[in-house]
């Protein structure tokens, strides 16, 4: 990652994401989009999947977007973006359009881990120069909090309810980064709305690589009603996700893996905050037993173990 921005003061004052859009107070994805667009600047075309961001920002006759914006459907933003990118390429080549515009997908976890995975894989395999940003609020929020492949183990959602037999989501969270990295694209990174400078630098870095091929950024973006916490806690909870080692920050850059602060210190478990600090603030985990929490902790340790092996092989 190149350091384009060192402090918050380096970020452009320009806003491309207008106020007045209809997301809930404290919406994590909304914060993500604001930083994304600031970092990307004006010469970008956004392709957005159906989901919370789409429905809250394009309510006819209003729009929150001051960059060109296309929404087609839920599962196909990577395919639509492939078309936009190909069009720009050929129209440029033919001298019909004079443009250097970059293409950026913004899609939720449902539109990425689940229904849109095929289109995403196709786009990555074909090598389109598109930055795909996954904003991960860990459930289908737009339809009212249903579980997705990105929902964590044990989390309550309306389709992984807490009952007398089953208590929250039975399965673990899908490792989308490993799936993406398996396509051997130039750049993939995780980011978190609580670390805007890191996020903005990753966006710029990714956009710079698009001449070589696709880039992917997985942004953790908490959702107050979906995760059941007070809306003023969004950034704090997001930060805890990384500080506890639940959501590590790292980059896959041309076959090399690099861990970003503070996650670069987290191979040493003692440097991570206890996971309970993250879990106890969220109503979706309120039903967890001691054992469940131990299980989550074990899973996080296993994940770090896996990351350590990756770091050893590709660091």
């Amino acid at each position: 990652m190149k350091m384009y921005f060192r402090t918050i003061k380096d970020l452009p004052l320009d806003e491309y994401y207008g106020p007045g859009q209809l997301t809930c107070a404290g919406c994590g994805p909304s914060i993500a989009v604001r930083w994304l667009l600031k970092a990307a600047g004006s010469d970008v075309i956004v392709v957005n999947a159906t989901g919370c961001i789409e429905v809250t920002t394009t309510s006819y006759p209003y729009t929150a977007w001051s960059v060109p914006y296309l929404h087609v459907a839920f599962e196909n933003s990577a395919a639509a973006a492939s078309g936009v990118e190909s069009a720009l390429k050929v129209l440029r080549r033919k001298g019909i359009l004079d443009t250097k515009a970059k293409v950026m997908v913004i899609a939720g976890d449902g539109g990425t881990y689940d229904i849109g995975l095929q289109a995403l894989s196709g786009m990555l395999e074909r090598g389109h120069g598109v930055l795909y940003v996954l904003y991960d609020n860990e459930a289908y929020m737009n339809t009212g909090i249903q579980r997705s492949g990105g929902t964590p183990h044990f989390a309550w959602t309306t389709t992984s309810p807490v009952g007398s037999k089953l208590r929250g989501k039975v399965q673990r969270k899908k490792d989308i980064m490993s799936i993406v990295i398996g396509h051997h694209i130039p750049y993939a990174a995780t980011a978190n709305i609580a670390y805007p400078i890191d996020l903005a630098n990753k966006v710029k870095t990714a956009l710079d690589y698009l001449d070589e091929g696709p880039a992917f950024i997985h942004v953790l973006a908490p959702c107050p009603p979906g995760w059941r916490y007070p809306e003023e806690m969004t950034v704090e909870i997001a930060r805890l996700a990384t500080e506890t080692g639940y959501f590590p920050l790292y980059e896959w850059d041309h076959g090399r893996i690099r861990f970003n602060p503070p996650s670069n210190a987290h191979f040493d478990k003692s440097r991570r905050k206890p996971i309970i600090e993250y879990l106890k603030r969220q109503g979706r985990f309120a039903h967890l037993t001691e054992e469940d929490i131990k299980e989550i902790e074990k899973e996080i340790d296993e994940y770090w173990d896996y990351l350590a092996r990756l770091a050893k092989a590709f660091g």
Binding site: A73, A79, S82, V90, A119, R126
Partner: peptide, 19 residues
């Protein structure tokens, strides 16, 4: 593309870009 759904989605994106 990897499917017809994506075929039409891709040409939607391209047509929306002016192609």
């Amino acid at each position: 593309v990897e499917s017809e759904h994506s075929a039409l989605s891709a040409v939607v994106g391209a047509a929306a870009t002016g192609a």
